[in-house]
Amino acid sequence: MVAGASTYDFERLGVLPRNSPRQCDLMIITGPISHRLAPVVKTLYEQMAEPRYVISYGECSICGGPWKGMYSIVDGVDQVIPVDVYVPGCPPRPEALIEAIIKLEEKIKKGELRRNFLPKTGYPEVKEDWRV
């Protein structure tokens, strides 16, 4: 949230927060995922239209973080949805989020994203030689 404010503005990189998942390209997951929240995250991910990317921000969504092994936490969000960029830290600084967005843009330009983990949801198939 702070990365969108005036000190570390991410709007200059072209990032704009939107209210509905249907209009979004990028989902940033911050914080731990509990067993109750995992189906909600999956529903939101399936509602996003192709091309869609996911940034996993903070230790809790990478591997469970300090709460790894507790009874109500899923160890990492990549057990639920596929993730493109991981940002380590507890909590990571806002500058790390800006770097993650820049890295994601470089990855998109080079075409290095993993496409074989897409869930089969009935969306149109993505061809292998797709470039931005």
Binding site: G31, P32, S34, R36, M70
Partner: peptide, 11 residues
């Protein structure tokens, strides 16, 4: 509630 229940009292 309970979407980010982490069980801190048990921890």
């Amino acid at each position: 509630l309970g979407y980010i229940h982490r069980g801190i009292e048990k921890l």
